[in-house]
């Protein structure tokens, strides 16, 4: 599904190398997790995959189902099936949550040559998905993320994911700021989307999330590289001992 080879990225404005050769492959149907110390480049990887400005790819490649991602505009990547749940979801005053979601869904459908969804069908769809995530009608009416609590913003990211039904989901610290119940809701939302045709890359600092969303593979990122990969037990090791041992071992 997602294939990243030797990806090297520097900041556009500064001479600062952030990703120093990332290799990673997430097959369809699999859930991979990335853990790693603050500032190791996890969010940068997610931004570069989704096409944010400000980064320069100096080497390597990233493809989604064999198609070069790095060559596409952000909206084309979305239409191709890539979705990023932001670490810090953006507030957009003046744009209603519903309008936003319908515009996004229809834009993707149009880009894929599908028919636009009718207003009535959309309403039905969103009501159903919102109910699962316990997002009430009032929140749907509000401007995108404006006045949402940290946890509400994260739930809203998952709602968008559920409505857009992407092929490859990248979740950047979707668990941070969630209380225990919200964590359960969000995990259920993610698990409901797990299927053989879909891949997940879950960035997190906490093993706790991985109890709910069980990963097939856990990667450790440090200083712009994947330094170690293993099974779910790797997350437990991080939880217990921190990164020091792992980093020493690979150094």
């Amino acid at each position: 599904m997602l294939q990243i080879k030797g990806l090297e990225v520097k900041l556009e404005e500064e001479d600062k190398q952030i990703l120093k050769g990332v290799d990673l492959e997430v097959p369809a149907g699999a859930v991979h997790a990335i853990m790693g110390p603050n500032g190791s480049g996890k969010s940068t990887l997610s931004y570069v995959l989704s096409g944010r400005d400000g980064y320069e790819v100096t080497g390597g490649s990233a493809t989604l189902e064999g198609v070069d991602l790095l060559d596409m505009e952000p909206e084309e990547r979305a239409a191709a099936g890539l979705f990023l749940a932001f670490q810090y979801p953006v507030e957009i005053p003046g744009v209603g949550n519903m309008t936003f979601l319908r515009t996004a869904l229809n834009a993707q459908r149009k880009a894929r040559g599908q028919e636009e969804i009718s207003a009535a069908d959309f309403l039905k769809l969103i009501r159903e998905k919102a109910k699962d995530l316990q997002i009430d009608a009032e929140m749907l009416k509000r401007p995108v993320n404006v006045g949402f609590s940290g946890g509400e913003k994260k739930r809203n990211e998952i709602l968008q994911m559920a409505v857009l039904e992407p092929k490859m989901c990248v979740l950047d610290e979707t668990d941070s700021g969630l209380d225990v119940d919200a964590m359960k809701l969000v995990s259920d939302g993610v698990n409901a989307l797990r299927d053989a045709g879909r891949g997940f890359l879950v960035i997190t600092h906490y093993q706790r999330l991985l109890n709910h969303i069980q990963p097939d593979v856990v990667h450790i990122m440090s200083d712009g590289r994947i330094v170690k990969s293993g099974g779910p037990e790797l997350a437990l090791e991080v939880e217990e001992n921190g990164y020091a041992d792992i980093l020493n071992e690979v150094a």
Binding site: S50, G51, R52, D53, E73, P74, E75, R77, A78, A79, F83, L84, F86, P89, V90, E91, I92, F100, L101, T103, A104, L105, A107, Q108, A111, V144, Q160, L164
Partner: peptide, 14 residues
Amino acid sequence: EDALFYLRSRGVPH
């Protein structure tokens, strides 16, 4: 720019 990227990342053209 942040709002613009957020919208585009959801598939809304520039």
